[in-house]
């Protein structure tokens, strides 16, 4: 039976037991963490489906189709980065940038999403990309297998909410992630969604005690939504180059503040 169906059928909605025996409050994280695994599992399934279509287009030399599929295919990966990044080897081969490699784009070790992005937008060619495409799909499948067997570390998951924002603040707001395609806003959307998912899952645990904190966090997520919505186009977003300077600053401020605030989430949930 396919995991996807079983997970969907499992419907691990958080049900707050009433009248259950007292249990250590720290264990209240068990249910949100289990739900997060379901979320990540569903995302990796979608990632595999999307990447299969994307790499097929690349291998078929359908440049326009491949370009159209590039940004949406990445979203499932960007949303689950806190977990995906736990596998350093796969993260490097799936999502490394040219400047992670000596010699940049010319380095044969530069593979994965951004290598294909470079070929599609800068070279306008898919020549020689078949092995890169095959490797990307194989890596994504391997990622899915590894995630299925992984016991999620709670501190990585809870810390992931801030880590995603930290990542945007440190290395993405500059537009360097998708430097050839300028599809950065798609990535941002996924990063924000991934971060917010974590906040939503743990919200019931801190709703009472941390109402002010959550209000600030919500306001900043909403600020981001408002800005991004201005740049929506079809299912996705316009080129990152269209982002006005003012909006980039406002986005930056919201992201930095979220990174700052969410860095306290682990501690608020009693995790070291």
């Amino acid at each position: 039976m396919k995991l996807k169906h079983s997970l969907a059928a499992a419907g691990l909605a958080l049900v707050l037991a009433s009248g259950a025996f007292a249990r250590d409050a720290a264990l209240d994280l068990v249910e949100p963490l289990a739900e997060y695994k379901v979320y990540v599992t569903e995302k990796t399934e979608k990632l595999e489906t999307d990447v299969a279509a994307f790499t097929a287009a690349v291998k078929a030399g359908e440049i326009d189709k491949a370009k159209a599929l590039f940004a949406p295919s990445r979203m499932s990966y960007e949303a689950i980065e806190p977990i995906a990044e736990l596998f350093g080897d796969l993260d490097a081969s799936i999502d490394s940038r040219a400047d992670d490699h000596e010699g940049g784009e010319a380095n044969p070790d530069f593979i994965g999403f951004h290598r294909i992005e470079y070929a599609l937008w800068v070279k306008s060619s898919t020549e020689g990309l078949a092995p890169v495409a095959d490797k990307l799909l194989a890596d994504v499948k391997e990622l899915r297998t590894r995630i299925a067997g992984l016991t999620f570390p709670p501190e990585k998951v809870v810390g992931g909410a801030a880590a995603l924002m930290e990542e945007v603040a440190a290395t993405k707001i500059s537009g360097e992630e998708d430097r050839y395609s300028h599809t950065d806003l798609w990535d941002f959307r996924a990063n924000f969604d991934g971060s917010r998912k974590i906040v939503e899952l743990v919200r019931p645990l801190i709703a009472k005690k941390e109402a002010t904190f959550l209000k600030t966090v919500d306001a900043n997520f909403e600020r981001i939504d408002t800005i991004l919505s201005k740049y929506k186009q079809g299912e996705g977003y316009v080129s990152y180059e269209k982002l006005t300077d003012g909006d980039r600053k406002a986005l930056s401020a919201a992201v930095n503040t979220l990174a700052e605030d969410l860095s306290k989430l682990r501690g608020k949930l009693g995790l070291d």
Partner: peptide, 9 residues
């Protein structure tokens, strides 16, 4: 920077 992330970039 840490104190005023939402207003100073």
């Amino acid at each position: 920077i840490k104190s005023i992330p939402d207003q100073l970039i």
